[in-house]
Write a protein that binds this DNA or RNA. Structure first.
Length: 285
DNA sequence: CACCATGTTCCTTG
DNA sequence: CCAAGGAACATGGT
């Protein structure tokens, strides 16, 4: 369930639930997800520590914690990879098959589960320090964006996945932003003109903001077992299905473009699917 | 069996 | 040193 909007919605959900809760015990069921932190180190730092807050940077979750009797706080870094989930569940509730880390909080437990184990929950925060600007920050502006694009011959769609360019855009919202900006995903990054850079800058913000708004509005079930193609969160049974109105091009191969009715095309770039409308997003023009 | 999947990192090549 | 491409990681759905 990754990409910035999903992480943002999750962080807003977890923040009040975790605030001031202390970790009574730590269970690491899959050591790879805490790497490169060692098991002993991980347990020593977390056991007894209290959650002060939760924030987001790109697709990362930053848990601020403080050890008992200490005035210094430290950061636990989370990432959901492709299939990660983080949620609170009642104490002794059945653990999912791929529960990777479980933190006992008293009446409740914090569960990080991840089917493919591509995600992380670690004390090594170096990955988050290499990220580019947050999409809603002043640091992400058209001139700086243009400058960053100007040195790359890569297709703009591929370049958007580079987290040092702008943090948080993933495979879904890269296609969505390019559709909104009416720019071909195959256009080399350095070929975008000033107007296109402006449109793309705006489209990225709009695609992400709209998704956050959507995720904040719809009832979500964070501990869900199954993905539902909606937010990749679980959803309450019977909740209305807004999926058809949510994503404009992603996963819509052969379906009519919402703007011009031409069939949406799927291409592969750097071994990943890209969806676009060949008429609204022409290679030239 | 084949192909697909929301991500990042490491290794190689130019 | 840098940019770019591809494999690897691990599991499940269709």
């Amino acid at each position: 369930m990754p990409e910035l909007p999903e992480v943002e919605v999750l962080v807003r959900h977890l923040r009040p639930l975790l605030k001031n809760k202390a970790i009574r015990s730590v269970a690491v069921r899959r050591a790879r997800v805490i790497a490169p932190t060692r098991l002993g180190t991980f347990r020593r730092w977390l056991r007894g520590a209290k959650f002060l807050g939760v924030t987001r940077r790109g697709k990362y979750l930053l848990f601020e914690l403080r050890a008992v009797g200490s005035r210094e706080s430290f950061t636990l870094l989370g990432h959901l990879g492709m299939t990660g989930r983080m949620f609170l569940a009642p104490k002794k509730s059945p653990l999912p098959k791929h529960a990777a880390v479980v933190l006992e909080l008293g009446r409740e437990r914090f569960v990080y589960e991840d089917t493919r184990y591509f995600g992380r929950l670690t004390l090594d925060i170096s990955a988050a320090e290499k990220l580019g600007p947050e999409p809603f920050s002043k640091g992400f502006n058209p001139p700086a964006f243009a400058q960053a694009l100007s040195r790359s011959r890569q297709a703009i769609k591929v370049k958007l996945l580079d987290q040092s360019l702008v943090a948080g855009v993933g495979n879904i919202y890269a296609s969505e932003a390019l559709f909104r900006a009416r720019i071909s995903p195959a256009l080399p990054a350095r070929k975008l003109n000033t107007e296109q850079v402006r449109r793309l800058h705006r489209a990225i913000r709009e695609a992400l903001a709209q998704a956050i708004r959507f995720g904040s509005t719809v009832p979500l079930r964070f501990e869900g077992e199954k993905r539902d193609g909606l937010f990749y969160f679980g959803r309450d049974p019977g909740a209305p299905d807004y999926y058809s109105e949510r994503l404009l091009v992603y996963d819509r191969k052969d379906q009519p473009c919402v703007r011009c009715k031409s069939p949406i095309k799927r291409i592969v770039q750097s071994a990943r699917s890209t969806f676009f409308c060949p008429r609204c997003q022409p290679s030239r023009g």
